[in-house]
């Protein structure tokens, strides 16, 4: 892919498990990926596929107990985050790596002014006077295109609309110019016209600041319009990885193909929408009782005996297009 010197994040064989009453969950099972400077990597999948736990693992925010990162390395600009003490990690979190969440209202302090929250984040990592930090806060609010940033900085989160709050969150996350930004469903709670504004904003800022971006979403439309590379996750594992063009042109994993076929599309001019949608039968399996072989096999139309017995390895099908499927070669023909 990209030049290794440009690498911001290198995740190798990440494993995160949860110990619960009903058994051991492998929420993230042997997941590896990289992100380069200025690159957007999308992680896509349905609820429970492990995409959010992956993000929390990168931030070292997995609640322990019940969760624990039990294997792998997460290298952010030459630092292995998993080897750091909590105090050292706290210095990096919010500075070199930061995160925005789906629901801005739950991640903003409701009794603190917007500007002060940004000031707090900045002064935690930078040796600045209160005045200097204030200026940065206002500057950040201006950067995320909040009108009247000086006035808005003095307001409380409840005085802002949902879109404005998400802008404020982005301002806070980017205030220290992190090398990597993780956005976990950043626009899912927003209306579609506001979503378009926020996505455009994130991409503009990323280009301007050269931040690496991990975008977690369930929306393939958002993936297609924002990412350069995509990881598809299913039941805790990475089942496919490709450039966005390659993935949408010819998905190699039956799950990816099923997902793409099941999304209704806004009809383009002149094209009548098909009556019925293609569906993937069944439901996502419980992570506690995963089948021995491929987790998708019970729902897969292409499944053979081998799929139930053996987990398929991730195989490179050319040009960095990885897929974990015994029948990946045939997926394209059937489609």
């Amino acid at each position: 892919m990209a030049d290794t010197s440009d690498l911001v994040l290198d995740v190798k064989n990440l494993k995160t498990v949860f110990f619960t009453n009903s058994g051991l969950f492998k929420a993230v099972d042997d997941v590896s990926f990289t992100v380069s400077r200025g690159e957007t990597l999308a992680i896509v999948g349905e609820s429970g596929c492990g995409k959010s736990v992956t993000a929390l693992s990168l931030m070292r925010l997995v609640p322990d107990p019940p969760g624990r990162i039990v294997g792998g390395t997460v290298t952010l600009e030459d630092t292995d985050l998993l080897a750091l003490s909590e105090a050292e990690m706290r210095k990096i979190r919010g500075d070199r790596i930061s995160m925005i969440f789906q629901e801005p209202m739950t991640s903003l302090n409701p009794v603190m002014r917007i500007g002060d929250q940004i000031v707090e984040a900045v002064r935690l990592h930078r040796n600045l006077s209160s005045r200097e930090a204030q200026n940065i806060a206002v500057e950040m609010l201006r950067l995320v295109r909040i009108p009247e940033p000086v006035r808005r900085a003095r307001e409380y989160p409840h005085q802002l609309s949902g879109g404005m709050r998400q802008r404020a969150m982005i301002a806070m996350a980017l205030a220290c110019r992190p090398a990597l930004l993780i956005a976990d469903e950043p626009t899912t709670a927003l209306d579609v016209t506001i979503q378009a504004q926020i996505l455009a904003l994130i991409l503009d800022l990323q280009k301007e600041l050269g931040t690496g971006l991990v975008l977690i979403t369930h929306d393939l439309g958002v993936v297609a319009q924002t990412a350069q590379r995509v990881i598809v996750m299913y039941a805790g594992r990475k089942v496919e990885e490709a450039s966005v063009e390659a993935l949408f042109a010819a998905p190699k994993h039956p799950y990816t193909r099923g997902l793409m076929a099941s999304i209704p599309a806004v009809p383009a001019s002149g094209v009548a929408a098909p009556e019925r949608l293609n569906e993937i039968s069944g439901t996502v399996p419980s992570l506690v009782r995963l089948p021995k072989g491929c987790a998708f096999a019970p729902r897969c139309t292409l499944a053979i005996k081998r799929c139930e017995a053996e987990y398929p390895p991730l195989t490179d099908w050319g040009g960095g297009h990885l897929a974990a499927c015994w029948r990946a070669a045939e997926v394209a023909e059937v489609a």
């Binding site: 016209t193 455009a200 439309g221 063009e245 949408f248 599309a265």
Partner: peptide, 14 residues
């Protein structure tokens, strides 16, 4: 504003 699930389609333009 609807993101289209096709990377070759026109990019989001609010």
């Amino acid at each position: 504003s609807v993101p289209i699930a096709n990377p070759l389609a026109k990019k989001l333009a609010p």
